[in-house]
Design a protein around this nucleic acid. Structure first.
Length: 429
DNA sequence: TCTGGGGTCCTAGGACCC
DNA sequence: TCTGGGGTCCTAGGACCC
């Protein structure tokens, strides 16, 4: 690495929302503050967010809801279905708030972001992080934890320590001496990018904590485990290998769900899968892309021991990149009837739009000239109306006629979409 | 009864070409 | 009969993330 002048150096903060889904629910229902709450995955299947009170009860992340339902009710835990409209909107507010502090923000997931700053040894970063944290809370109502380090990997580690420090939720890992003290207490499996399998391999060669990995030979690590791990070694040393990624369009877009109840007929499957295809197409157009291929798949419940198992999928390429819902729906339905076999209980299915390209690139097929104009104006009219008057105002008959199919996700504990004006009213319960 | 839904990157190996 | 060596592209699958 060439020597970088200190005034060229950067520093990274990782800002992570505390118990994000739970915090979103609390913003609009202050009664929930200090109450134990869980938020469930689609279909009310797993526990995917827990308030601190619930974590203290020893309820694990990702656990099947039905295993703990009894305990949760007994302890008076408030239970919520996922409300992604609400969480997505709150996420956007947090991210926009961060951009006030730096233009270099990478939205890493719905609840966390990296923020890059120019490094200056005269700046009091701890105070600055506190300002960020307090501002986000004041502007959005969402509490966050902030970790700081010279690389993204170290910022990640700092963040995990910030979350543990119950008082300030801030951890500054910018100084090399702090790094050395801290890394010794971080297990390799807890480093960003290293999970159980690689952790086990590292332990085989005597590397059990982050300090040992930092001190390992990058060349050897590369030879033994590959370039990704080598980068982590450098990152732990404070040599930045991973820069901020500005939001890039997705290369694939998938919409799939487990059905609320198993499906045993093609008609219901067509409705469900068509609905997912429509959603996928909307997502695709909202990032200004077109797909070159669509993948349609189906599967039975692999957890079930008594039912026959079957799983199938089919890829279809298009002649021209396509973003037209009607066209894609036709192909998906055709493919579905090809993979559908009678006599099975289907549990999950979905659609993936593959090999997305920007919609302004007209890499036309040599022999076929496709006129995008009519399709594009039709699609933008549909999207515009649905944006203005609410999702599903205009819909495809294939996907929407029977709105109450019993295959639809179970969401028995849904909160209102407080922030998205045109959302439907919540279920009464 | 009941077990989420998305994504990314890297590598090995096959197909194909000269 | 004998059957090289190197390059590129693509795909499937593995590993990881939230």
């Amino acid at each position: 690495m060439s020597s970088t002048k200190s005034n060229d150096k950067n520093i990274f903060a990782l800002v992570d929302c505390n118990n994000f889904y739970v915090s979103c629910e609390r913003v609009f229902n202050p009664f929930l503050i200090n109450q134990p709450i869980v938020v469930l995955s689609n279909n009310d299947g797993c526990i995917i967010a827990r308030s601190n009170e619930v974590k203290a009860l020893g309820i694990p992340m990702g656990a099947p809801f039905h295993h703990y339902q009894h305990t949760l009710l007994q302890k008076g835990v408030q239970i919520y279905s996922s409300n992604y409209q609400l969480y997505g909107d709150m996420s956007e507010r947090v991210m926009n708030s961060l951009k006030i502090f730096s233009p270099d923000v990478e939205v890493y997931s719905i609840d966390e972001a990296f923020v890059k700053f120019k490094y200056s040894n005269r700046r009091n970063y701890y105070e600055y992080l506190r300002t960020i944290k307090n501002s986000i809370f004041q502007w959005t109502g969402i509490p966050v934890s902030v970790g700081l380090g010279p690389t993204k990997t170290l910022a990640k580690i700092a963040n995990s320590l910030a979350k543990k420090s119950k008082i300030e939720h801030i951890y500054d890992l910018s100084s090399p001496s702090t790094q050395i003290e801290t890394l010794e207490n971080i297990q390799v499996e807890n480093i960003w990018g290293i999970s159980k399998r690689w952790g086990a391999k590292l332990r085989l060669i005597g590397i059990g904590n982050a300090l040992q990995l930092r001190n390992a030979s990058p060349q050897k690590i590369r030879k033994y485990l590959g370039v990704v791990l080598e980068r982590i070694v450098y990152e732990l040393r404070g040599v930045s290998c991973l820069d901020i990624d500005q939001i890039q369009p997705r290369k694939n877009i998938m919409v799939s769900r487990s059905f609320g109840n198993p499906i045993n007929n093609l008609t219901d499957l067509e409705q469900a899968i068509s609905l997912y295809a429509v959603r996928a197409c909307e997502k695709m157009r909202s990032q200004s892309s077109r797909a070159q291929t669509v993948y349609t798949f189906l599967r039975t419940n692999s957890f079930s021991k008594k039912n026959k198992q079957y799983s199938a999928g089919i890829m279809s390429g298009f002649n021209n990149p396509c973003s037209d819902t009607g066209y894609i729906l036709n192909i998906v339905k055709k493919n579905l009837s090809q993979i559908y076999k009678e006599g099975y209980l289907y549990h999950k299915g979905g659609v993936m739009l593959v090999d997305l390209v920007p919609d302004n690139v007209h890499q036309r097929n040599l022999f076929e000239r496709y006129d995008y104009q009519r399709s594009d104006s039709r699609m933008s009219a549909v999207d515009g109306i649905n944006r203005k008057f609410g999702p599903g105002t205009i819909f495809y008959a294939a996907a929407g006629l029977k709105k109450d199919g019993d295959w639809q996700s179970r969401t028995h504990h849904l909160s209102p979409r407080y922030t998205t004006k045109w959302g439907e009213l919540p279920h009464a319960y």
